[in-house]
Design a protein around this nucleic acid. Structure first.
Lengths: 201, 201
DNA sequence: CAAGCACTACCGGGCACTCGGTAGACGTGG
DNA sequence: CCACGTCTACCGAGTGCCCGGTAGTGCTTG
C-alpha cells in the first residue's frame, strides 16, 4: 500500500485520524437507519459527540463523508487481499457471505446505498458501476481458474459471474427484510451446488 | 356522521380517477430520478401541471401517494393473473424479465424503493417484506409443479425459490448501472439452465 | 505561537403539510 | 328556468422544521 495522499484541504494528525474513523463508522450506522439522503450530518455528529460544524472540519462536505464510507468498505472487505490484484476464491466468497450474516447493520448500509445509487446523479453511482465491473471480472477469473472454460453446469465463467454477484446482492435484500425466513449462507451454498453439484465449497 | 364515508376525506369522480393515475405515473418517474425520500411533492405536482397543494387534494399525504405507486405496480405486473391465486409460470417469469429490460424507468423506480425500504421504519418496508414472502411461496409452488420435490440439480423447490427471486433483483441492479455490459434476459435464462440444463425456458 | 480542533451564530433554501378560500359542475325544488 | 346548496378541483399564503454549508472565534497542545 502506498502512502495515503492528503485527503485535501485540512491536514489531520494521528488523533484526528482516529476521530475520522469514528465518524465514518457513525456515518455507516446513520446511513443504515435512514439512507444517505435521509442521513443528516447533525445525526452523525451527535453520535460522536460533535456538532454538525465540528464534523465538517473533518469532512468538508457530506459527499466527502460518503466517499470515505465507500473507501473504508473497500479496505475492509478486501481484508488481506490487495484490491484489484488477486481475486477472491470461492471459499473466501462463502466466508464473506457467512460474515455478512452476522453484520446486518453493515449489509443494510450498503444495500441502502446500492438502492439509492441507481437514481440520477447519485454520488455513489460511479462507485457501484466500477465495483460491479471489477467484481464480475474477478469472479470470472476465479471461476475459470477453478473449472476452466466450462463450468460443470455448462455455463462459461463470463455467464456465471454476474449470476454469482446477483445472488449475493439479491439474497441480502430478502434477508434484511425477513432474517428468520432466509438463511443467507445456506442459500448461497445451494447456489454453488447449482454451479457444481460435486463441490462441497 | 353515522354515514360511513368513502375511504376518507374526498371522493373522486371518473375524471378525478384519471388524474390520480396521471399523478401516480409522474410520481414513479420522480422516484426513479431521486428516490422516495428525495422525491418532493412539488416535483411530482409540476409534472402533471399542479401545485403541490393541488396534488395533496388527491393524495392527503406523501405516504398515501407511495402506497398508490406500490399498489399500481401490483395491479400492473400481475396482469391477467389474480394476485395470490395462481402463481406465474417459469415462462411468464422470463417474459417479465424480458419486458423489464425495455422499461428501465420502472425498474429503476422499484429498485430505488427496494433499497430505501431496508432502512428503519420505511413506509415501503412492510410492502416488500410481504411481497417477498408471497413471491417465494408462489415460486416454490411453480417449481414443484414443474419438477416435483427435487429439481434436476438436486435442490428442493424451497431452496431454489429464494435464489430465483434474488437473481431477478440482483441482475436489475447490475443492469441499471451498466446496461451495455449486462444482458438481463440472457443472464436469467443462463440461470434457468443452471436449474435444468435440459430446459429451453 | 501555530496548527489542529471544536464551538456559536447564522444563512438561504427546501420540505411536508395546513388553512382558508375560489371557481365551476350538478342536482333539486320553488 | 333559475336560484340554491353541495361537491369536486384546485390554488395562494403561510407554518414549523430541518438541511448542508459558511464565517468567525477561541481553546488546547505539541
Amino acid at each position: 500500500m502506498t502512502n495515503p495522499p492528503r485527503p485535501q484541504g485540512v491536514r489531520h494528525g494521528a488523533r484526528g485520524q482516529a476521530r475520522r474513523e469514528e465518524i465514518v463508522r457513525a456515518a455507516m450506522e446513520v446511513i443504515a437507519e435512514r439512507g444517505y439522503r435521509g442521513a443528516s450530518l447533525a445525526a452523525v455528529a451527535e453520535k460522536v459527540g460533535l456538532t454538525q460544524q465540528g464534523l465538517l472540519h473533518y469532512f468538508p462536505s457530506k459527499e466527502d463523508l460518503l466517499i470515505a464510507v465507500l473507501t473504508m468498505r473497500d479496505e475492509w472487505d478486501s481484508g488481506e487481499r490487495v484490491i484489484g490484484e488477486e481475486p477472491m476464491t470461492i471459499a473466501q466468497a462463502v466466508g464473506v457471505v457467512e460474515a455478512n450474516s452476522h453484520r446486518a447493520p453493515i449489509v443494510r448500509t450498503f444495500s441502502a446505498l446500492l438502492g439509492e445509487s441507481v437514481t440520477e446523479d447519485h454520488p455513489a453511482g460511479p462507485y457501484f458501476r466500477d465495483r460491479y465491473r471489477l467484481v464480475r471480472r474477478d469472479m470470472a477469473i476465479t471461476l475459470r481458474r477453478r473449472w476452466g472454460d466450462r463450468l460443470p453446469s455448462g455455463l462459461t465463467p463470463e455467464e456465471a459471474a454476474p449470476l454469482l454477484v446477483a445472488i449475493m446482492d439479491g439474497l441480502q435484500f430478502q434477508w434484511l427484510h425477513e432474517p428468520e425466513s432466509v438463511d443467507m449462507p445456506a442459500s448461497f451454498r445451494a447456489f454453488l451446488r447449482l454451479i457444481d453439484p460435486e463441490a462441497a465449497a
